[in-house]
Simulated scan of single mutants.
Amino acid sequence: MEPKVTHPDGLALPRGHNSLTHGVPRAVPGSVHALALGGGYAVGPRDGRIVYFGRNRPLVHVCVGEDDQQVSRRHGELIHRQGRWWLRNTGRRPIRLPGAQWLFTQQDPIPLAEGYTPLLVPGSRDREHLLEIYVTGHDSGPPRSRHGVDTDPPRRYALTPDEKLVLVVLGGGYLSREPNPKPLTWKETALRLAALQPDAGWTAKKVERRVSTVRDRLSRRGVPGLTREEVGEPLGNALNDNLLRELVQSTALTPKDLDLLRGSP
């Protein structure tokens, strides 16, 4: 039997409520707002409180993917304990977080940071259902306009010439605007590198070592989704996919780097 939906002091957010990207009204620090297409819910902090979300509107505080049977009736929950809100997946399909991080069912809950966090619940026929979360801090409020402020530069990562060449070959599809790019295999990458640099001794193991060195370096700098422990099983291409997307978004790799494939640098 499903537990009852309670919290009489919570506040229902109506369908059509403004996106939480605009911030939330002044609220007790540690309060949580959760919003989906059909409305949402806000409640203050208290240990043991749980906010449920999923497809079955009568059994959840926030209804997500009401017409999509790929979304579980109770797909997840926000739990307040130890002064923080934690996200748990109780559904059949994983929940996607920022930074290409996935939370699977039966994994330990993860803590939510103060401020805005968008979650995506995968559905049928490539649909994705957005669930916006906002945890208020002591200085939370609507974001201030910054029209005249200088643009923050992207985070940059230094790469050696060898590392850059390997990554451009490994992730050429990410730089050439393929619709669903995937990393090459170690073997495919080594074969293409050997064609570019016949005397460099490229092998699948050498390629793997170069890429692993870059992943480890970025992981130590706080980039998420680059370790087996973070991503979980099945691993597939996830580690290299996350690495390449981070390097492209940070402009450490750009389409101009494809010029390296026309010959040895």
Rank of each mutant, 00 (worst) to 15 (best):
L120K: 07
P183A: 02
L13T: 04
L120D: 04
L119M: 07
L120F: 15
L235S: 08
E128C: 07
G91F: 06
R155T: 14
R245G: 02
R81C: 02
P25K: 00
E114S: 08
R26Y: 05
G99S: 04
A190E: 08
R125N: 12
S72I: 05
K4R: 14
R93M: 09
Y174N: 04
V32Y: 08
P8Q: 12
F53I: 01
G236V: 00
T136G: 03
L165Q: 14
W85Q: 05
W202F: 10
Y52P: 00
E114Q: 11
D67N: 15
A12W: 15
R88V: 04
V62S: 10
S19C: 11
T254L: 06
R93G: 02
T90C: 09
I110M: 10
V168Q: 07
R144W: 08
Y41H: 10
N237F: 10
G40Y: 07
V64T: 07
V28G: 01
S212V: 01
K4M: 08
D9R: 06
G16A: 09
L243M: 11
T136Y: 14
E163Q: 15
P98Y: 15
L87W: 01
V214A: 05
E66W: 11
V24A: 09
A194Q: 10
E230T: 08
Q70I: 00
P265S: 12
T227C: 11
Q70W: 05
H22A: 14
E132R: 13
F104P: 00
W186R: 13
R74F: 11
G10C: 03
T227M: 05
D108Y: 13
P255V: 02
I95W: 11
P198C: 05
Y41P: 00
A204V: 01
V121I: 14
R84Q: 14
R96D: 03
S219M: 04
R210W: 01
Q82H: 13
V231S: 04
L13I: 02
